[in-house]
Simulated scan of single mutants.
Amino acid sequence: MFQQILVPLDGSACSEQALVLAARLARAVDGTLYLLRIANQEYTYASTSVAGVFVPADLAEMTDLEMKGDHAYLDKIASSPLLAGLNVVKEVRAELAIPDAILNFITSHHMEIVVMGSHGRGGLARLVLGSVAQKIAWNSPIPVLVHRVQKPEQDEQVSELATPIHALVPLDGSPQAEEAIVPVGLLVAALSGAGVGSLHLVQIIKPSAHHTDEQHGQAREEAERYLQDLAGRLRGGLASTFQLEIKFSVYSDEQVAPTLVHIAASGDGAAAPHNLIAMTTSGRGGKRRFIMGSVAEHILQKTPLPVLLIKPDETSEQRKDS
């Protein structure tokens, strides 16, 4: 798994920081890096017959100079010391719908993971990786590893991502949320090398004004039994196979997403300080459950840690609901 690694680039230093994680993963699994440049340049615009509405000119009008510049950019990246010795494939695509272009590339080239920065260069001519990363993560059929850089000095944090890897895995008791466990387990094992990585399974119980203290206590006990059983199954399977340590914790808090960001930063309850968060983009809602999609969005915006996002299998949920 993770042999085919896609890294979308927009020409900004911020987007290129994803290469640190991607290169580390490629070396760990002897994989191939696919560097994808969406050549969404500042095309000449021509008006349509509808007043006030403008559409891009034919993509074929992109000049040879522009295309050569994009290829030269990828050549420079591919020849950098960071990627020395790796198998690298370079692709330049002329597209307007950037997320669709990336998603189509994922499918047509059988990618297995996307590694990308969450902010790049803005403007008409460049990827706005903050929004693009979210669109890709919420629609990608494969895991998406997103690194969000808030400050320039955080580049150092990425390059020094500790070994082994200790991942925070938020859960809500649903099978959909559990679909993050196998991908993050494989990723942690690959990036941890000879070290023993860990998964910290966390469930937040959100208090409800409609429940008594006794009912809230029962909800906590239910969550603890659920995580204990899940951890036991993982220790006898995935964790044993890939030498992973499994921890679990239950918390009570009204603010689910900020609490998870705090836990990730503090390392509370983990085998070691967290350096990765992994979760699905949807799960189960309800009075005592959190909606994974909104929580994932908040975490992606607020944490400086890399976030592995997995879109759960919709067909299994549809069969369950039918």
Rank of each mutant, 00 (worst) to 15 (best):
L86R: 00
L309K: 00
G195C: 02
L309F: 02
S12P: 04
E222F: 12
L65E: 09
K68Q: 14
W138L: 08
Q203F: 07
V128T: 07
R319Q: 10
H211Q: 07
G130P: 02
D213M: 11
V307A: 10
I142N: 01
P170Y: 07
A194I: 08
L234G: 01
L305A: 03
H109P: 04
L82N: 12
L145S: 09
N104R: 05
P8N: 04
S159N: 12
E317K: 09
N87W: 08
T107C: 11
G236H: 13
R319G: 06
L305T: 00
L9I: 09
P99L: 11
G11E: 07
L171D: 00
P170H: 05
E214W: 06
I136M: 02
L244H: 01
E178H: 02
I136C: 05
P99M: 11
T212P: 05
Y226K: 09
N275M: 05
M1Y: 11
Y226H: 11
G197F: 00
Q154I: 06
A209W: 14
Q255L: 14
G285D: 02
V158M: 13
H210N: 11
L96T: 15
T48D: 15
I310V: 14
A209H: 13
L234N: 01
M111R: 02
V196I: 11
F242C: 06
V149E: 01
L187D: 01
L227I: 15
A26K: 03
T48L: 14
G293T: 15
Y45W: 15
A72I: 06
H147V: 12
